[in-house]
Amino acid sequence: MGFKLLSKLLVYLTASIMAIASPLAFSVDSSGEYPTVSEIPVGEVRLYQIADGVWSHIATQSFDGAVYPSNGLIVRDGDELLLIDTAWGAKNTAALLAEIEKQIGLPVTRAVSTHFHDDRVGGVDVLRAAGVATYASPSTRRLAEVEGNEIPTHSLEGLSSSGDAVRFGPVELFYPGAAHSTDNLIVYVPSASVLYGGCAIYELSRTSAGNVADADLAEWPTSIERIQQHYPEAQFVIPGHGLPGGLDLLKHTTNVVKAHTNRSVVE
């Protein structure tokens, strides 16, 4: 069995187990497998329904001669939608809004960016022009300005110390501490036991640490421990890039980060 097929099978099995364990909360999309990078042309966006009122959005972007996937989250909030992270750029984010209108038909009224990198804030200006209120932590807003990236308009308070959590509509926002970046936030959907790890969490097929220019490698494993301790009931975990899975993604990420750190020390 090929690795790609095995990865998709694991996603399907995880979703099936969740649907059985929580039949009222989960209505997993039966329309197909989780979209992969090879299936999404740059400039297009796919939506994948995880649970009743919960979707991931998947886009792709060219970077350094390669094409990478990027995940975000959409959560229903009454007759409105909360968006977590842009679709990595203005063109993708405009396509995301169009796809949401086509498939869901509810307005996106608020959006949260989970850290300051372009795959999370690139497209904020498109959201703002569409009347979406954009939010991020003060740290993310400051770092985005320093980096020359787009800056969300509103500040999220109460997320300055490791372990801080605040309720934001249908989700809980959690600051686990520094990891992929010093400002990275985690998003949890309690009604569906869905954990969105953003770039602080890796997919299972990833074996290298990737972009760690703004990471705190020493603190990252401790931050992941905080996530595990705060959300032990999480059933569906979405990484910032690639295929979702279960809580095993947290341990896998820790292993990859520690291996990278150990290699760096040896070198």
Rank of each mutant, 00 (worst) to 15 (best):
R46E: 09
T254C: 07
D214P: 03
G246T: 13
L249M: 11
Y12R: 09
H115S: 00
H115K: 00
G158W: 05
L82V: 09
T114H: 00
A209S: 09
N149L: 14
Y48T: 14
G198E: 04
F63L: 07
A51W: 08
D118R: 08
V28R: 08
L47T: 08
T14K: 08
M1T: 06
L47D: 04
T36Y: 13
L204H: 13
A87K: 00
F26R: 14
S160W: 10
L73N: 01
G163M: 05
F3G: 10
A234K: 04
A130E: 11
G240S: 05
P41Q: 12
F3W: 07
P138Y: 08
V146C: 09
V112G: 04
S139N: 11
T14L: 10
A213S: 13
I201N: 06
G53Y: 07
S137H: 08
P23G: 10
L83A: 02
S22Y: 09
Y196L: 03
V121Q: 00
G245E: 04
K8H: 06
A111E: 13
N255V: 12
S31G: 10
K8T: 15
A111F: 07
H115T: 00
K258C: 08
K251A: 12
G246L: 05
G2R: 10
E219A: 13
S31A: 11
G105S: 13
A21D: 15
G210F: 02
E99F: 08
R226D: 01
N184M: 01
N184C: 03
Q229L: 13
T182C: 05
A66W: 06
Y196K: 00
P35Q: 09
Y175S: 01
E145C: 08
S31P: 10
V189Q: 01
Q61E: 04
N71L: 03
G131K: 10
S38I: 08
G158I: 03
V28T: 11
E267I: 08
R128S: 11
I17T: 12
T140W: 02
D183C: 00
G65E: 09
S191Y: 12
V265I: 12
A165C: 06
L96T: 00
G53S: 11
S208L: 11
A95Q: 13
W88P: 00
A111S: 14
Y188N: 05
I238M: 08
Y175H: 07
G32R: 09
S155E: 14
P244G: 04
G2E: 15
S181C: 02
A66D: 13
P170Q: 07
A66E: 14
G78F: 07
S205N: 10
I224F: 04
D79A: 09
S191L: 08
S139T: 12
D77V: 03
V212E: 04
G169W: 05
V121C: 00
G177S: 06
V266D: 14
S16Y: 15
L83S: 01
G32D: 09
V212K: 04
G78S: 09
I104D: 00
L6D: 14
A144M: 04
A87R: 00
T86I: 06
F168N: 01
A98P: 06
V54E: 02
A215M: 03
N184F: 02
F236K: 09
V257E: 00
W55A: 02
D214H: 10
P23F: 09
N92W: 00
V11Q: 07
H154T: 11
Q49N: 10
S27A: 15
S62P: 07
E225Q: 12
A200P: 00
M1G: 06
G122E: 08
V257K: 02
G163H: 05
A213K: 14
V132Y: 01
H180C: 01
L96C: 01
R206M: 15
V42Q: 11
A178G: 12
A19S: 15
K102Q: 10
G2Y: 15
L173D: 00
I17L: 11
G65Y: 06
L83Y: 00
V189G: 01
I100M: 06
V45W: 02
T254Q: 11
A178Y: 08
V126M: 05
L96E: 00
V166D: 06
E203G: 06
D118T: 14
R46Q: 09
V266Y: 15
S7I: 10
P239I: 04
V126N: 04
V121D: 02
R46L: 10
Y48L: 15
G245S: 06
A192F: 08
A94G: 11
H154R: 10
A95Y: 15
G53V: 08
R141P: 04
S16D: 08
V237S: 01
P190W: 06
G43F: 07
E80L: 04
V166M: 12
L9S: 13
E44H: 12
A15M: 10
A59H: 05
L97E: 02
G210S: 04
D248V: 09
V256R: 01
E33F: 09
V171S: 01
G240P: 05
I50H: 09
V132C: 02
Y202R: 05
V108N: 02
V37I: 14
D164R: 09
L159Q: 00
E157A: 12
T253V: 03
P35C: 07
Y231R: 01
G131M: 07
D125A: 09
A25Y: 14
A94M: 14
D164Y: 07
R206P: 06
E147D: 09
E99K: 13
G210Y: 01
T182D: 14
P221D: 06
V256Y: 06
H230F: 15
H115W: 00
A259G: 14
R128Q: 13
G131N: 13
W88Y: 01
H252L: 04
G210V: 04
S56V: 15
L97R: 00
T222C: 06
I40A: 09
L195H: 05
V28M: 15
P23R: 12
A179R: 03
D85M: 00
I224P: 01
A21R: 13
T86M: 00
L24I: 15
S56Q: 15
G246C: 04
A59S: 12
V187D: 04
L173S: 01
I84N: 01
P244Y: 08
G53T: 14
S264A: 12
S161E: 14
T114L: 00
V42Y: 07
E80D: 08
P221E: 10
M18Y: 15
A130K: 12
E172M: 03
F174D: 01
V166W: 06
T182Y: 13
A51H: 08
G245R: 04
M1V: 06
A95M: 14
G2P: 14
T207K: 15
A259P: 09
R46H: 09
L96A: 00
A51F: 07
P152G: 02
L10R: 10
V75A: 06
S62R: 10
E147C: 08
L249R: 01
F63R: 05
L185S: 05
A95F: 15
L143W: 08
A200Q: 02
V124M: 10
V266M: 14
Y202K: 06
L247C: 07
N71C: 04
W88L: 00
I201Y: 00
I186S: 04
S162G: 14
G32F: 14
E99A: 14
G65L: 07
V108A: 08
L243A: 15
S70D: 03
G177L: 02
H260I: 07
